[in-house]
Design a protein around this nucleic acid. Sequence first.
DNA 1: TTGTAGGCGTTATCAG
DNA 2: CTGATAACGCCTACAA
Lengths: 323, 323
Amino acid sequence: MVTIKKVAEEAGVSVATVSRVINQNGYVSEGTLKKVKSVIKELNYTPNSIARSLYHKTSNMIGLIIPDITNPFFPELARAVEDIAMKCGYKVVLCNSDKDPEKEMNYLDLFKERYVDGIILTTQSQESKVYSDLNVPIVALDRIGDASFPSVVSNNYHGAKKATELLMAKGVKNIAHIRGPKNIAPSDARYHGFIDAVEEQRVNYTIGEAEFQLEDAERQAEQFFDIHTGIDGIFCSNDTIAAGFLKVALKRGIKVPEELQIIGFDGSFFGEFIYPELTTVSQPIYDMGAVATRLLIKIIQGEKPEKYLYEMPATIIERGTTR
Amino acid sequence: MVTIKKVAEEAGVSVATVSRVINQNGYVSEGTLKKVKSVIKELNYTPNSIARSLYHKTSNMIGLIIPDITNPFFPELARAVEDIAMKCGYKVVLCNSDKDPEKEMNYLDLFKERYVDGIILTTQSQESKVYSDLNVPIVALDRIGDASFPSVVSNNYHGAKKATELLMAKGVKNIAHIRGPKNIAPSDARYHGFIDAVEEQRVNYTIGEAEFQLEDAERQAEQFFDIHTGIDGIFCSNDTIAAGFLKVALKRGIKVPEELQIIGFDGSFFGEFIYPELTTVSQPIYDMGAVATRLLIKIIQGEKPEKYLYEMPATIIERGTTR
DNA sequence: TTGTAGGCGTTATCAG
DNA sequence: CTGATAACGCCTACAA
């Protein structure tokens, strides 16, 4: 390993001088500057960031905690975070918490030990004191925390309301909503968007519920179609649930979108893999990640956030499951 | 920040003693052991891993470079790596190279500076000298490098051959293969598996080509179905291509699997989101990641790899696109 | 303009 | 059994 010491010896100067040319501060004469630079290149020296971290208590790293990278929502998010972070000179450490408080705590500890400069959270399974005790800038993504740190979310409520209204505008008489798990902020917000839309128009509606997983969605769909007949429009709490309901409908010979229209939520890539393609409320996932990361970096650099809730618009993409 | 020094003061001992109780080596009397332990708990002290890294030139971190986490193949892989690594006390740093040599080089530098203990590569855009100069244990995944470090791959050739044979066994008369990009090892291997299967049985065949992306797959499918009529079986180089061809076939009113049977490759999760569900050659993605990680950790811990090529079996999952 | 030396938090060696 | 102390690689007062 080539250290600053070796460079110094080779160049016939002290380590301080080498440090100065690396960090471009302090005075260095033209001549030594050149010599040191050439030695650095020759020896292919890179400063050891561990040693730097130890001194600066800083790491140029951002910690990102997500529940599960295997969930289609998160790769794009992670990608956005990494892209922006890189552009600003930060590296990203990605961690899957599985929503397990203990795992999350482990990663939080890791982050602290490793002097990460900031953290992006998409889950919060600890008491808020834990986060504030970390004494590290934090931004929440897709969750609304308390006001101890800023959140970036998409406008789940409005997206859901608009989707429901679209369904009704397209002539749906017998509408249903398959909601996601209770007590998950986005899932609840979408539910309320649906409710408000149907109540404003005083139409009857049916509510179902499913986990955000295909298998459960299919199971619920089978039950649902057994019990409820004549449903001609469903707004699902996310695309995975929508895919499950679509599959079961198709399997039963229900014509989509002629007899049944379906709208999902998220704008997941697989919506286009399906035929008919899924109409969905698209969240600007990449943008959310980008906004959160830029915000975090600003905070790291000492700026105060302008607000504590950044809402990004969700927009409807009409495809093949509506007419 | 609470350091070993503070703990030492608080407990009325020297840092050396505290260090001993943390690392459980050297002699510590019952009494001081207890006192130190209680102070550690009281102050909620955790050793600073940066400082440890500096001393040990080791980080308990594994670097993972993948082309793009947004590609459905990689989340599961990443997940496996993280799971196994965690279980063995290693953390994972995940990086997207986009197959860009410069980006990859940046990450490699990062890894070196940060003393990562080992690296898992799923891309190789540098000359092999670059990797060996790193002087860090490396395992390749889903690529066959030269013999400078071990690789874990799935048996692309055999999986492809078996899929092709299955298609023929199911009565396909007019078979086609849509191959992936040239000069990508897995894509080439699958192509050869197909070729050998059809030539053994001396049947005619058609070859198409597409990128591993839905949009291009659909474009190629449109052209393909315009030109080639009467094709009743297609083996696609991966699931994304298969999804594109399936979509276009369905759009054109071709009945699947009655008139056309399709088999993909990968066992991507979205194969089940589609209706009819995609028959596919499933790679044990999670297992590949797990094997690679265990192997890497063994090497890190000083064992020699038993072989330089670990081939994992690819197995056919029959679902709705074959009959 | 350059060099010396102390410190960042930890570990391990070597006396005591 | 315990305590100084040097070292890991780097940075920055402070001196020269």
